[in-house]
């Protein structure tokens, strides 16, 4: 089966991870912009990061047979850094229309500060203006309050709720998202924090698969890019149907990101060509007599 991981920070991962993910059936990923483990001190480094997730990382993923997409944003932590926050906000419109950008994210609360709220609101407005999907991160501490506050702000801004995912849910917050909104509810499977695989199986048994997204969010911390796959195994053992699993790990992410206008359904059905140069082989002496590069691009686009 094909898997779309809707939230995973691949820039922090190794090529071995890509190989393992592709082998396990992960065909597409979406990488939300976030922080690097230590705060940036210049807008320029933030811009280069955006360029990386739009450009180099997309190419790197393609070399291992994975379609790479991203969402861009000023992340919650760095919303508190007045030296760069405004500058990043000015950059976003310049990158919002790129081919692999599926929306805005991740935005939201971390420490529940006034600055976080300011930039959450501004970016929800940006998403609304461009009718783009948006990923709302919920805090590790004070999660329930943070989730409720995020939902309240989203309702004030008036975003189309089907275009919003409230992410990193737990048993306490999932019912709030499902009952009080039409948003998607994201779940991040982490080895130690956030949501465990077993608990996730329980949530699906209790709440079903509608509007549920599951991601492994793997980053530079202790995390596992195959958590989605490992959760699927547990789901099978718990007799959750293949149809439901497919809905959770393919149909739902695709449906969530589709309104971006940047998901080509036909294109993501199969992994990208792993080594584009293979088109140039065949006749090793005469290669290049015909304009092979362009043919190659057409095939891979």
């Amino acid at each position: 089966m094909k898997i779309f991981d809707p939230h995973i920070h691949m820039t922090a991962r190794t090529t071995d991870d890509y190989v393992a993910m592709a082998q396990a059936g992960i065909v597409a990923v979406c990488e939300p912009a976030f922080w690097l483990g230590q705060p940036r001190t210049h807008v320029g480094t933030y811009e280069d990061y955006l360029k990386t997730i739009i450009g180099w990382e997309r190419f790197r993923a393609s070399q291992f047979g994975v379609h790479h997409f991203c969402t861009i944003a000023l992340n919650p932590r760095e919303a508190n850094n007045s030296k760069i926050a405004q500058g990043v906000m000015e950059l976003l419109p310049l990158y919002l229309h790129k081919e692999s950008v599926l929306g805005i994210g991740e935005i939201g609360f971390d420490d529940m500060t006034a600055d976080e709220e300011k930039y959450l609101r501004l970016q929800l407005e940006l998403a609304k203006e461009h009718s783009l999907p948006v990923i709302v991160h919920t805090p590790h501490r004070n999660k329930k309050k943070g989730t409720e506050r995020s939902i309240a702000i989203m309702k004030e801004v008036g975003n189309q709720e089907e275009l919003v995912v409230i992410d990193h849910n737990t048993e306490e917050t999932l019912p709030i998202v499902l009952e009080q909104t039409n948003c998607w509810a994201g779940h991040t499977i982490y080895p130690q924090t956030k949501m465990s695989r077993n608990r996730m199986v329980g949530l699906v048994q209790k709440y079903g698969v509608e509007r549920i997204l599951i991601n492994s969010s793997a980053d530079w911390g202790v995390s596992d890019p195959l958590n989605s796959i490992k959760t699927i195994q547990l789901m099978r053992e718990a007799s959750i149907s293949e149809k439901q699993i497919e809905t959770l790990f393919w149909d739902n992410p695709v449906q969530f990101y589709l309104p971006s206008g940047n998901l080509d359904l036909k294109e993501i059905q199969t992994p990208p060509q792993i080594d584009q140069r293979k088109f140039w082989e065949g006749n090793s002496v005469l290669r290049g007599q015909t304009p092979l590069v362009e043919t190659n691009q057409e095939e891979s686009e």
Partner: peptide, 8 residues
Amino acid sequence: SEVPLGAI
């Protein structure tokens, strides 16, 4: 990078 020289 194994790019065909004939394409240059």
